[in-house]
Design a protein around this nucleic acid. Structure first.
Lengths: 240, 240
DNA sequence: CGTCGGTTTGAGAGCCTTCAATTCTCGTGG
DNA sequence: CCACGAGAATTGAAGGCTCTCAAACCGACG
């Protein structure tokens, strides 16, 4: 479950479609535009670490696709704790599922460039292009699948399993081939990780230490780890 | 955040659309069909408690809408623990976000009737009806929003907060007006609740007891509770 | 009336959080 | 090039929360 690539080319996303009629695929013609092709015309916007792309509560009048970097989507609970819903990496699109208001704040974790697309433009193009509207539905489906497979099981795991699962998510996103020996780049802080998987900074640290002592990973630096035993890591990430 | 109704009429769902072009709404004409209208032509299928509507791994060749009853969607983790992803109630639709295989088993919690629609039919109708395809996108959006607002915060709460949150979800679904004094019907078992919010049966029980002793709810029977102090319950559900 | 599944309560062990102190990392300025 | 300082990471100890194991209770049903 961990090894399929979420950065599959658009065609692959289409091919997995359970909604569009395959027989109609050939009739799309030249006016069929993918979100990617629309995005290519936009200029890139650059952000430095810790800068905010949009705030929770802002009018959700645009959607964004990351060209590079990393962004986290978060919100504060009434008790003051921060809840990180998702980390976005290159190619990820954010905003398609938003209503009038942004339900999250989007803050850059590292230097980031994004394409910005007006929601009104997406609306208009969707209304005229069944293919594009289908692509949007596919993207929403993918988002739900990711939520289902990556995030939801976190709630049922102990600390070590949650951290292992996060590492595997990062490994899958970062490196194409994900084997024992591969290096994982961890751009976010321990506190970010904690707010993502529902633990404290200290517990995240201790979990890293346990995984290290168990020989499943080895630490190059706080933000780089090597996978020493992938099957073992997967086992932990799935609850022993 | 808890009090908006997820069972809003279809029009309301359309009106909240962030994707369809409002200007095109009037051109839908008579061929515009909603999922609800399609469903009305189907015959109902009845299931008794504990019966299975579909198994994890089955070909996902149909989608379902609940007419009445309650269904839980679950899957087993490699460690043997069961993970309940969602409880479906009347009007809920399941399957739109599935790929070739069902990612969950759907098991009835109580006597349940469903409408069954072939996925191929949805595909075909979607290909010919932008309005229907838009409705599908809206339903996926709603599912994501629910996941974001109801489920995701669970991971960051203690046992009492998770149970309080579940009670509010049930209250919102069950009764239209949700005030102190309202009765909540809890059809699933304590074990089901535990597998949903990532705890054990015993901890769920103890959390109910704590909420009772705190005067936030009172127990009519194991499967019926009264809300005694809604603001207090909401506070707990959001992390104090 | 007895059984069975589900619920509730208790006790002890293990996990996570909190609070505190220490170490590490890395960019900056000398 | 090296020293310095701020922020991040790590480690320790104590206490609270949750899990496990066990036992008692309850209600529906045959």
């Amino acid at each position: 479950m961990f090894m399929h690539s979420p950065e599959a080319p658009q065609r692959a996303i289409f091919d997995r479609s359970g909604l569009s009629d395959p027989a109609d695929r050939s009739s799309l013609g030249s006016e069929a535009r993918t979100l990617s092709s629309i995005v290519k015309g936009q200029k890139q916007i650059c952000y430095s670490p810790k800068s905010i792309i949009f705030h929770e509560g802002d009018d959700s009048d645009s959607i964004y696709q990351l060209a590079s970097g990393m962004v986290c989507l978060y919100r504060f609970l009434p008790n003051g704790r921060r809840l990180i819903a998702r980390f976005l990496v290159a190619q990820d699109i954010v905003g398609l599922s938003f209503d009038e208001e942004c339900p999250f704040t989007a803050e850059c974790v590292e230097p980031t460039t994004v394409y910005k697309i007006a929601r009104s433009q997406v609306r208009t193009l969707c209304a005229h292009s069944p293919a594009l509207q289908n692509e949007v539905a596919m993207l929403l489906k993918t988002e739900l699948t990711t939520e289902r497979n990556d995030i939801l099981p976190m709630m049922h795991l102990l600390a070590e399993g949650r951290v292992a699962r996060l590492l595997l998510i990062l490994a899958r996103r970062g490196g194409a081939n994900c084997n024992s020996g591969d290096r994982i780049q961890i751009s976010m802080t321990r506190g970010d990780i904690a707010d993502f998987i529902g633990l404290t900074t200290e517990t995240v640290c201790r979990s890293f230490a346990k995984l290290r002592k168990a020989g499943l990973i080895s630490a190059v630096s706080p933000d780089k780890v090597l996978i020493k035993n992938l099957p073992g890591l997967i086992a932990i990430a799935e609850g022993e």
